[in-house]
Amino acid sequence: MTEQTKTIEKPIVDNISNVSEWLVNHSDLIVQYCINIVAAILILFIGNLIAKGIAKGVSRGLHKKRMDPAVIEFVHGIVRYLLLAIVLIAALSRLGVQTASVVAVIGAAGLAIGLALQGSLSNFAAGVLIVGFRPFRSGDYVEIAGVAGSVESIQIFQTVLTTPDNKVVIVPNSSVIGNPITNYSRHKTRRIDLVIGVSYKADLQKTKEVLYNVLANEPRLLKDPAPNVGVLTLGASSVDLVVRPWVNTADYWNVYFDLVQKIKEELDANGIEIPFPQMDVHLNKLDS
């Protein structure tokens, strides 16, 4: 072995010896760190399972109390994320991180994030208001911010609607609170408003009798409140009558469509004309 090789190997051997000596001298510290890391991982793993279990338990308890499913989903999300935050702080504490410092850092970061994510925080606050005041429930058919659909769920930051043609529309909670909400399902009954135009030559009394007969032969209409038929306006091409029966909310659209068809058929059967927009043109002959 040459002198140059010996010169290279000596520092390596010395370094290995120093590392071994350091490991022996600090073996207790290394073991403690390893135990803390394993414990922190176990805290995260087991804590996550416990958080899920508690959140599911809360959901089951609310289901037993027959709470609105949309509210249950909102509360489930809040409980789970709060517990996960506690688990994370516990894991950091096990690693030796000062939790007071962590809380202070989280507070400062929360302020900065809050300023940057004002929209998300407003959506969260709006979600709390929706759950608190409950302007609608899961399954209600509503119109919000120009979107109509059935409420599928109320989440932390958004409300999910399903349209009649089975499209999913996600509306931010702040838009829900900041816009008028039309709830078509809140009451058990609804009024159908139909405008029927007939010719100016038609016998209005006979027309009203035909319309009342159609309503009387529809078993799904409510007797109380009683249906109403009256002359609404004298239009440009027709006399417009309004037909206003009451029906159970669940039957609204089926009855609506059937009534329109039956009214058309009965007016035709009784010789009552439903005019289309028209214009009378008079030509005057001029002498040459």
Rank of each mutant, 00 (worst) to 15 (best):
K52N: 09
G53W: 06
G53C: 01
I54V: 07
I54T: 06
K56Y: 03
K56S: 01
G57R: 00
G57H: 04
V58M: 03
V58Q: 11
S59R: 05
S59D: 04
R60Y: 14
G61L: 09
G61S: 06
H63T: 10
R66T: 12
M67G: 05
P69I: 05
A70W: 01
V71I: 13
V71Q: 05
E73Q: 09
F74S: 01
V75E: 03
H76K: 14
G77M: 00
I78K: 08
Y81W: 13
Y81G: 08
L82H: 10
L82Y: 11
L83Y: 00
L83Q: 02
L84V: 02
L84S: 02
A85T: 15
I86G: 03
I86T: 01
V87W: 08
V87C: 03
V87E: 02
L88G: 05
I89S: 06
I89C: 10
A90E: 00
A91I: 05
A91T: 03
A91R: 04
L92D: 10
S93C: 04
R94G: 01
R94C: 02
R94S: 06
L95T: 07
V97D: 09
Q98W: 12
Q98F: 06
T99P: 14
A100W: 14
A100I: 04
V102T: 15
V103G: 13
A104Q: 12
A104Y: 13
A104S: 14
A104E: 12
V105G: 14
I106R: 06
G107A: 03
G107D: 05
A108W: 07
G110D: 12
G110E: 13
L111C: 13
L111H: 12
A112F: 02
A112E: 02
I113L: 15
G114T: 13
G114A: 12
L115E: 09
A116L: 11
L117Y: 14
L117E: 11
L117H: 11
L117W: 08
G119R: 05
G119K: 14
G119W: 11
S120A: 15
S122K: 14
N123I: 11
N123V: 09
F124D: 04
F124R: 05
A125G: 11
A126N: 07
A126E: 08
V128M: 14
L129T: 13
L129Y: 09
I130P: 05
I130M: 02
